[in-house]
Write a protein that binds this DNA or RNA. Structure first.
Lengths: 221, 221
DNA sequence: AAACTATTTTAGGCATACCTAAAAATAGTT
DNA sequence: AACTATTTTTAGGTATGCCTAAAATAGTTT
């Protein structure tokens, strides 16, 4: 019925790797995600397969079963709800909450999750713009695209980040770029793909392609 | 520097056994408190002694070191703060929060504890009337006595419970007896020490000695 | 003091979740 | 098709925290 912290971390990691189709769900990818070694991952995959949380065949990679996916999404839901609590209620900054939410996501109590959700006003996204799955695991995500894909002259709203590291988030703070900002792409340099953007029709900022790839936008026009 | 969940549970249990001088800090008492076997306790005592969190000599019982006490009180502080959060903010009932707080007390982040404390308005007691240690581990407890010790004709205020079980708390709910109630002892039966009390100058209630021992009062007069 | 009882500790085991090093399987290249 | 490089798995080992059963100690009675 209920998983260990470690099992939950693996399920969450596998779920994220399946969703972000950038990487494939290889043993090595999971090892990197949960910060361990490939041999340890193989051990755990066997255990998760025994519990019918993943389907797994040696050398052939993994998929989450419906059951596994349900647990993974539940952990993600809790993580993101706690992040909202930490930022909105306790006034943490958005670059400070990840490690704490990483612990809080393992607290086991359905009543707690539902009461927290209600207390927070049933938020749809977390402080980094990631969608919060609802009680039934449904995720109502708006379509997000990296800023690097915006065409010159077009506008969009910043709705998320692809890099959740404190370093990147602090960089955005320093540049005063935040979720909800209106962004217009003024010009793009062919050589290094760096760009000049206009933020909220006020500030003109120069950013590298590296940064543009990690800023997610919606509602291009 | 930091303890495992299990170590924290042992430290908290030992601290409580030292404070409540009803029981002595024997291996068996600890085993009962952390819900394990005596042999497992011995294992853990060795480990805690190695870490200088307790002083321990075979067959001679344990005492917390200053360091051990600091960690124990910190866990208690977190437990009680989370209970306040669960009851005051999330609207849990006072008989529902123990198990959840038991998990939340292990979340590691000083910043979180301090921000939670501030968010809650620096509460002095938890929903069961137990004092919340401050940031420095100081506990400002008012003097509490079991209702069974009140003399006939005298009055007092209910400020706590000795039994934290859901069963007892639900019993109090049903009888509509709660923290802060003014209690006057009308009469006492010599035979079984049961008593009749007047609550808030309104309700007259008959309670057993068993119950009276588990209701804590302050400010007798 | 000896004997008995209760408590505590030791000894030896088990499951979890990790590790390193070596072997096996797969994928890519010539 | 053979060889190489990479990935993945197996084999064997570690630390934590628990267990049961047996031995050691303490406390109490006769």
């Amino acid at each position: 019925m209920s998983q260990t912290h470690s099992e939950e971390n693996y399920l969450k990691a596998i779920w994220k790797l399946v969703e972000n189709p950038g990487e494939n769900v290889s043993t090595n990818a999971i090892a990197a995600a949960v910060n361990t070694k490939a041999a340890s991952v193989t051990d755990m995959l066997k255990k998760l397969a025994d519990k019918k949380l993943i389907s797994y065949e040696r050398y052939k990679g993994v998929t989450l079963t419906a059951k596994g996916k349900r647990f993974a999404v539940e952990v993600v839901r809790k993580h993101r709800l706690w992040e909202v609590f930490l930022v909105d209620q306790l006034k943490f900054k958005w670059d400070e909450v990840h490690d704490i939410a990483e612990q809080l996501e393992h607290i086991q109590s359905n009543a707690l999750t539902e009461k927290l959700d209600k207390f927070l006003g049933f938020p749809k996204v977390d402080p980094h713009g990631d969608p919060i799955p609802d009680k039934d695991g449904k995720i109502s995500g708006q379509h997000q695209v990296p800023l690097s894909q915006l065409e010159t002259g077009k506008k969009a709203i910043m709705t998320g980040v692809a890099d959740h590291s404190a370093l990147f988030l602090q960089f955005l703070d320093k540049k005063e770029i935040k979720l909800g900002d209106a962004i217009e792409l003024k010009e793009k340099t062919d050589y290094d793909h760096s760009m000049v953007i206009l933020v909220n029709k006020k500030k003109t900022i120069q950013i590298s392609n590296e940064v543009a790839k990690n800023i997610l936008i919606s509602g291009m026009k």
